[in-house]
Computed example of a mutant assay.
Amino acid sequence: MLVPKTEELVANPYRHNGRQGAHEFFEGKFREVFRKAREHARDDFPTSVYYAFKQQDTSKDGQASTGWETLLEGMTRSGWKITATWPMRSELSNRMVGQGTNALASSIVLALRPRPDDAPRIDRRGFLSALKAELPDELRKLQQGSIAPVDLPQAAIGPGMAVFSRYSGVLEDDGTKMTVRTALQRINAILDEVLTELENDFDSPTRFALTWFRQNGFASGAFGEAESIANARGISLDALERSGILTKGGGKVSLITPGDLPSDYDPSVDPSISHWEVVMHLTRLFDDEGVPAASALLGLVPPSVDTDLCRELAGLLFKLAGDLKQTALAVSFNNLGAAWNEIARGASSSSTQGALDF
């Protein structure tokens, strides 16, 4: 009771004349903290900040985290540039958060460096051009690592904010400075564009399956619609049925769920193997038997199949399952993507051992 509370850095409406006053007090003091830290920071060492704020507010633009935006706004306005945002597994592993939010099953570690005092300004168009030029390559680098699909949007904020915060200001058309909230919306939009563009790299059966999954999930749909989608991709529904991707009958078509796939599948002798089949069978095996079984199957996939694309497909399917509100499926695809590097290492080891045995 005797500890002074007046200067405590909390947004308490009872101490600061209501909610707005509390917000202004917190934001102003927060910037002051980072401004003073900036004065004593060294250019040759990064500064790391651990973030574990989970308050959510809803705006007309959707759901956003006031605390997260205050954090980033305070840093950028205090002379810092943000070079990375890394998810850190500190919460319950089974916690699932919907798409479009800034709170995840992870806490966040941010890496900062002092922004030069003479950093230039840039207009909105220049900022968006820089984002579109740099963010796709950075996202692909993140996908090569062990970033779980559920954490990719959060990790993508790092390279996106690196572009935003390298400038002393991003000017809107009316001359005002762009807010962090607007910058985050643009970063997320470009992330969605990059994930969508990935579909062009997949084989025809996989592109069909993705389009059908986006519309219907694993539920049945009209035969005529499926036939139109297949024809547009130069493939027949009969071929897709023979390959084990879908079932058709009674004027209906549905994709085969991972749980309904045959347990004796051997990708090494599949004459019509696709990225979709590989990911579906891996999802089934990983859910049922874990990494060793998934590694054994991946080791049998012929070299003609780009397994990096299979990993990207798992991440894309996580997003689509989340959009369809199919949480259990999203969890399965996320778990597969998160464990991909371990599965791939096991597949490489089993392939090497097989060659030695031969």
Rank of each mutant, 00 (worst) to 15 (best):
D308T: 05
V301C: 07
A133C: 04
Q144A: 14
A84N: 05
L210V: 11
P262I: 02
V3P: 00
G249D: 04
M1G: 12
E138H: 06
L198E: 14
R115F: 03
D43Q: 14
T47G: 00
P159Q: 00
K141V: 15
Q56K: 14
T211Q: 10
M96V: 15
A52D: 10
M88K: 07
I256D: 04
I343R: 03
H23Y: 04
R242T: 10
Q55V: 14
I147R: 04
V97K: 15
V49H: 04
R89E: 15
S165L: 12
P262K: 12
D260V: 07
T47M: 15
S129R: 08
E7W: 04
E134C: 00
K325P: 04
L356F: 06
R233G: 05
R125D: 15
N216T: 11
L2A: 13
N102C: 07
E27D: 13
A156K: 01
A330S: 14
G221I: 08
S93F: 07
L171P: 01
V163M: 01
R38S: 11
N188I: 09
G79P: 02
Q56D: 13
V49D: 00
V109R: 11
S168G: 15
P46S: 09
L298H: 04
A162V: 03
E277T: 11
A37T: 05
R95P: 00
F358K: 11
T85A: 13
L298K: 03
R214T: 13
L313H: 05
E227W: 07
S106Q: 14
W68C: 10
V291I: 15
T196A: 14
R77Y: 02
A103H: 04
